[in-house]
Amino acid sequence: MAQTRLGRNENISGWAFIAPAMVLLGIFMIWPILWSLWMSFQTGRGMNMSFGGLSNIIRLTEDPIFVKALGNTLTFLAIQVPIMIMMALIFAVMLNSPRLRFRGLFRTAIFLPAVTSLVAYSILFKSLFSTDGFVNASLIALGLSERGVNWMGDPFYAKIVIITAITWRWTGYNMIFYLAALQNIDKSIYEAARIDGIPAHAQFFKITVPMLKPVILFTTIMSTIGTLQLFDEVQNITLGGPANATLTLSQYIYNLTFRFMPSFGYAATVSYVIVVLVAILSFVQFYVARDRK
């Protein structure tokens, strides 16, 4: 587009069209995030706040619950996101093979979880993993466990439940992105590879993955942002327990504001940790992906 063609009227129209969005973003995003920064230097209970300097940051370093919530969030991120991306890629490649029968059926079935509300599926998982629930009954029936697993009472297994649930909800969603991208890859590249005698698994790593790199990057960043904000699932499946083993940063912010004695300033400080983390991780992921090109 030639910018020189833009007349004065055009310029005004241009701004007029984007103005509503900008004003709304200004009020409901820019202003709150700046206010939040200011609040993170305030201390006090409830609405009675006063300037506290760096005391919230000091509190952060001494707070075992914050460390735990941060650790949990990063654990979910480090374990769940790679597993899910890997599975989504494998399903997408399998579904993309032209001779596959029942393709539409498989695709629809695997995508279906992405249609549910986060709260709804969390409740389903909570009931599936209850003490005498379906999962334990199945494990006992199959002889894999004698008394069933104490899913919600054991810090390790509770994390497994959360990771399983999130993977169930989002694998099909990510798969759709890969499927769309795979369809844009020129089939002749694979033809050539086959003629050259390159085996299927090598084709996957040498052709498919590099070609999908931009989409993989996009989905990884989106999943990272999503995981750092994890709330609905842990709130409805484990309520952060047992022993805060599944407590996430978002949930801790919520608890600091609405469950325990309200501590708005400190909650704002914790929320800035997420902002910084998202920024750093997005940057790193961009950097890593760009580097290898």
Binding site: K68, D154, P242, A243, N244, F260
Partner: peptide
């Protein structure tokens, strides 16, 4: 409830 929550953390 704040203290109860701190106790619950150590029980497992």
């Amino acid at each position: 409830y704040e203290v109860r929550s701190a106790i619950a953390t150590q029980l497992p």
